[in-house]
Each structure stands twice: as structure tokens, then as C-alpha cells.
């Protein structure tokens, strides 16, 4: 399944209202000395955090930092496990940027991301608008539409590989049955169609996410505003363009941001569907980095490419923190 954002930042008006939060410390002060209680509570708080801090250091901080070290080392399978690789300067980066497969994987990742987001947004928004209307069966439909999201991503890749088979693939069979194609299309052995295949599969994969979040934003648009616009003579398109979109714009920004973060990470889907082929024509940064590290055992070059990917993904970090600011501000301790 797709990894999820833990917190879709608050954008609803209710979330911004300050909560009445009585201060526990002052209330219990009569029982013991205030300073003692505060110290005891702070200690308990830190103890509750110990496993998480240890985990974050072990599983995020160390690997991310070690990846930087690795990218400046001349590493080989013999030394990968014992940290004795010689220093390589910027050799790995030079190698990556001189390698046409790497540079085209970087460019392809950008095209793939832009294409996916465009497709996912347009289709997802259309479906969300549809489900926002009242009609029989819509809650059932909404429950089913999230199914693609819960599948293991590698399984999705394999499923699409099956659908796109030249002979016997369901896509070709259906296209021919309805008369849209006269002969089977060779989706996976043609470099251009291979890229189109991973794009289609990824759009399919991401649409439910866009539908779920955009739908819940549409549900929060006050009915009175739409009615007022209606009375003022605004047509459906004008109501959408000038009333609905401005209100849900913060959610649209968040969804696109999270979609970007998901899409630059895509790996399983491509490995399952095309394995980066034909002739490396569907390699993304992730899949090519895997190839460099784990198939060519060029861990240094893989790490250098990883850092390019990390930079690309982290471009979003300040934006992500910015849209999460309400949640962050809440944390500065007024709650207890």
C-alpha cells in the first residue's frame, strides 16, 4: 500500500479555533510543590519519548547521514559492511552526472511526477465532485474507490504488467473488442509506451487519495455560500471557479504537495511493471539507484543518486512544515 501522511494539515475553520485547555499544573499545585510536579511530569514525558527518539535516530537519522558519507566513498561489496571504504571525493557524483541513464532517470522522474499529479488531480477532482452530489449508492461507491490504495504496490505493478501484455493482456483485448485498436499494442516493449504504462498505472494508483481528500474538503464548503452564489445568478462553472475552488484551495495545495512527495518515491510499481525496461526507458531515480547499488554493487554511485532524490523530496519539507503550522503551533505546550 501507499505510505500515508500522518497528518493532513488542518485547514477546516474549526481546527483553528483555540481549545479551552485548563492548565493541569496549576490545578494540582495545592497537593505537592509545583516545581516538583512539573519536574516529575517533564521526566515522565521524556521517558514516554525515549523509544521514538531512539527509533528515529536509528532508522532515519543514521541512514540519512550515512547515505551522505557513502556517497563520498569508493565502496565495493567487500567493504560495504565494515565501513572501511576509501574516500572518493566527488567521484560518485561525477559518475552519476556523466552517466546518461542517471541523468535521464532524473529528468524522467520529474516528467513522471508532473504527469502523474496532473492526471491524478484532474480525474480525482472530477470524481470527488461527482461524489459530492447526492445520489443513491454514493457512500458505497466511496468505500470501494479506496481499494486500489490498500494493495501492496508491487502487486499493483504485477497486475498492470498482466493487463498490458501484448497477447492476452486485458487492455488490448478490451481495446480490440470495442474497436479502439485493430491489432494488439505492444505496451511494454516500446520505450514511449512503456513510460505511458507506468504513468497510467501510477495515476490509477493515486486517484483514490485525491478523491478521498478533495471529497472531504468539498463536504466542508458551506452550502449557504453556494446557494447565495446561485441566487446571484452564478452558473455551475462559476460557482465552482469562484466559490468552491477558493475555499478548498488550501486542501488542493496540500494534496498536490503530498502527491509530489509520494510520486518521487515510486519504486515498487515500476519494478513490478517494467523493471525499468525496455532498455532502461522507464528507470526513475529510485529504480536506477537500486540498480546501481544492488545490481552493479556500486553503492557510492547509488548513494550519490539517492542524495539527488533526497534533495528533490526535501524541497517540499519547508512547504510541508508551513502547511502543518497549525498543528505545530498547537504543540508548543498550551494543552496541559
Amino acid at each position: 500500500m501507499m505510505s500515508l501522511p500522518g497528518e493532513v494539515p488542518d485547514v477546516s475553520p474549526a481546527a483553528r479555533e483555540p481549545r479551552a485547555a485548563p492548565d493541569r499544573v496549576t490545578r494540582v499545585r495545592p497537593r505537592r510543590s509545583g516545581a516538583g510536579i512539573e519536574r516529575r511530569q517533564r521526566l515522565a514525558g521524556w521517558l514516554f519519548l525515549v523509544p521514538a527518539i531512539a527509533y528515529v535516530l536509528f532508522a532515519f537519522a543514521v541512514p540519512t547521514l550515512y547515505n551522505i558519507v557513502l556517497s563520498f566513498e569508493k565502496s565495493s561489496p567487500a567493504v560495504i559492511g565494515n565501513f572501511t571504504a576509501p574516500f572518493a571525493g566527488v567521484g560518485n557524483y561525477r559518475q552519476v552526472f556523466a552517466d546518461p541513464t542517471s541523468t535521464s532517470a532524473i529528468l524522467r522522474t520529474l516528467t513522471f511526477t508532473a504527469g502523474s499529479l496532473l492526471g491524478q488531480f484532474v480525474i480525482g477532482f472530477a470524481i470527488a465532485l461527482l461524489f459530492n452530489l447526492r445520489f443513491p449508492g454514493r457512500s458505497f461507491g466511496r468505500a470501494l474507490i479506496i481499494v486500489p490504495w490498500l494493495l501492496p504496490l508491487i502487486v499493483t505493478g504485477v497486475i498492470f504488467k498482466f493487463l498490458f501484455q501484448l497477447e492476452g493482456g486485458a487492455v488490448n483485448q478490451v481495446l480490440m473488442a470495442v474497436g479502439l485498436a485493430s491489432h494488439p499494442i505492444d505496451w511494454l516493449d516500446n520505450p514511449h509506451l512503456g513510460f505511458l504504462s507506468i504513468l497510467i498505472a501510477n495515476i490509477w494508483l493515486g486517484v483514490p487519495f485525491f478523491v478521498v481528500l478533495l471529497y472531504s474538503a468539498l463536504q466542508d464548503v458551506p452550502v449557504q455560500l453556494k446557494e447565495a452564489a446561485h441566487l446571484d445568478g452564478a452558473g455551475p462553472w462559476q460557482r465552482l471557479r469562484y466559490v468552491v475552488v477558493p475555499i478548498i484551495l488550501p486542501v488542493i495545495e496540500v494534496v498536490l504537495l503530498l502527491g509530489f512527495v509520494f510520486t518521487v518515491k515510486v519504486f515498487d510499481l515500476v519494478i513490478g511493471l517494467t523493471d525499468g525496461g525496455p532498455a532502461n526507458s522507464t528507470q526513475l531515480i529510485t529504480t536506477w539507484s537500486y540498480n546501481l547499488s544492488f545490481q552493479q554493487f556500486s553503492f557510492g554511485a547509488g548513494a550519490a543518486l539517492n542524495n539527488v532524490l533526497l534533495m528533490l523530496a526535501l524541497v517540499c519539507a519547508p512547504l510541508y512544515l508551513f502547511v502543518s503550522r497549525h498543528s505545530l503551533q498547537r504543540s508548543v505546550g498550551s494543552d496541559r
Partner: peptide
């Protein structure tokens, strides 16, 4: 949450 898994996997 933003850090891609391939980055973590290699290290």
C-alpha cells in the same frame, strides 16, 4: 515521512 525508502534501504 518525506525521506524516500530507497535512501533508507541503501544505508
Amino acid at each position: 515521512q518525506i525521506v524516500p525508502s530507497i535512501v533508507l534501504a541503501t544505508s
